[in-house]
Amino acid sequence: MHVPDGFLDGPTSVATAGVAAVAVAAALRGARRELDDRTAPLAGLVAVFVFAAQMINFPVGAGTSGHLMGGVLAAVLVGPWTATLALTVVLIVQALAFADGGLTALGTNITLIAVVAVWIGYAVVRLVQSARPQSRRLIPVAAAIGALVSVPAAALAFTGLWAVGGAAPIDLGLLASTMIGWHTLIGIGEAVITFLAVSAVLGARPDIVHAARHLTQQRPLEVRTTAEASS
């Protein structure tokens, strides 16, 4: 669910757009380190993956279902900088081509989902991983805990923004507790799906999982621009 136009007032929207612009500029530099010249095609396909993964509905029961946000999943799989870029692009496309999420709220949505959820989640992942850095089995667990924290963290950030520039005054304690309670439930779903999906990728292609990079021997592809002389 993305914040639509009119939810937050003008100054708050402009301020979050500024935060988003700075974060995305930093991510553009950071992603070059994660992916070098493969940045554009790979981040593009990761963005498509996040978008398509959100199309998979997970039944909760009683006729309702939910889908993944995917911030922490992307951060664990391809690294946080690339995840920020991919989610930013997903949000831009959703706002401009699907009218999902407001145009003036684009900065807010990028800040909440591509920055707060991704980075707080990723920080938690690293923290959990630091307990046993050499353990491969810990990675899906760390990813799940990161995903669990990331959703209520984004909800809390939204509560903070509402306190500054919301459309109507609401008791902030009530809003915060409702938002955190509800989003912790969503976070549990996010955690389970992230755990299972990271396990699946680790089982098949551990070499492409960013969080497991230090565990597998890297054999980087060498691109030769000039043909070698044949002897």
Partner: peptide
């Protein structure tokens, strides 16, 4: 099952990117 599908989807997308 759904999450494994998602994992497979990631690998396919990533390899397509490469």
């Amino acid at each position: 099952v759904l999450a494994r599908t998602m994992g497979a989807l990631f690998i396919r997308s990533y390899e397509r990117g490469e």
